[in-house]
């Protein structure tokens, strides 16, 4: 958000810088089952975002004293590769931002996964952003949900992630990197497939309540497309049924 200096005009005749309409998603491609060692995995292209998600478990908790005798625990690690951004060479590993994102994504799946089935176990979600172009946490949630399903992890429901933002006064779905840098507000969220339950919600900037309402409506409308792409990715693993 922040800098208003050198802010480019983000909307031209009702269209966004990359030519999208306000309610239009970027191009999304999801592939499930891309890694051999992981119990489940997914590769996701979302605009210029490139994400790989891998799941291990349920497996025994390390170290043992973290184990919950009544349920599985979830560990989540989101990080950005040092070469993921167009700008400077980043640092390997997790910074404070990555640790916070890992935590809120973990909480999404603590809701969706049926943890009670696996006492004393852990389920690991690894999310690597190989290339970032805005809304990476929403993109990671989409990849993680597909990867979890492909690992055979029991869940109450599937989950998708999507962001909305206020761009030159206009509410837009799926903000990209440039929009995110100069927008008036940004609101990433994770939503359950069936009942539209909000499992992740963050927001910063400024929006009034009617704009937020409009943002939710746009997110849910765009969600239809994302949900069908997630489903399609999983079905592709079993062609020939």
């Amino acid at each position: 958000m922040a800098s208003k200096i050198n802010k480019p005009k983000l909307m031209h005749n009702g269209k966004r810088l990359d030519g999208r309409m306000p309610d239009e998603l970027r191009k999304i491609r999801i592939e499930a089952g891309v890694l051999k060692n992981a119990n489940g995995s997914a590769y996701l292209e979302w605009g210029k975002n490139r994400i790989i998600a891998a799941i291990y478990g349920p497996r025994d908790v390390v170290p043992k004293h973290f184990a919950d005798p009544n349920a599985a625990i979830i560990k989540c690690r989101y990080s950005m590769a040092p070469f993921s951004s167009l700008e400077e060479h980043g640092r390997a590993g997790q910074n404070r931002r990555a640790i916070e994102i890992s935590k809120v994504i973990k909480e999404v799946f603590e809701n969706a996964v049926i943890l009670e089935e696996f006492p004393n176990s852990e389920i690991d979600i690894f999310l690597e952003v190989l290339q970032s172009d805005g809304s990476t946490r929403a993109a990671c949630i989409n990849a993680a949900a597909v990867a979890l399903a492909s690992a055979g992890i029991p869940m109450k429901d599937m989950v998708y992630g999507v962001s909305v933002g206020k761009v030159d006064g206009e509410i837009c779905v799926d903000v990209d990197m440039i929009e995110d840098n100069y927008s008036e507000a940004d609101m990433p969220m994770a939503i359950s497939h069936r009942d539209n339950r909000i499992l992740l919600l963050q927001m910063d900037g400024e929006m009034d309540s009617s704009e937020i309402r409009k943002g939710f409506d746009m997110a849910v409308a765009a969600g239809e497309k994302i949900k069908s792409l997630q489903r399609e990715a999983l079905l592709q693993m079993y062609k020939g049924v």
């Binding site: 119990n39 349920p58 497996r59 399903a149 492909s150 690992a151 992890i153 029991p154």
Partner: peptide, 18 residues
């Protein structure tokens, strides 16, 4: 789960899982 549902047998079998 991600599974396969057989209507004749009315049976759901998981496709993956540890």
């Amino acid at each position: 789960v991600l599974g396969i549902y057989n209507e004749e047998k009315d049976e759901l079998v998981p496709l993956e899982g540890a």
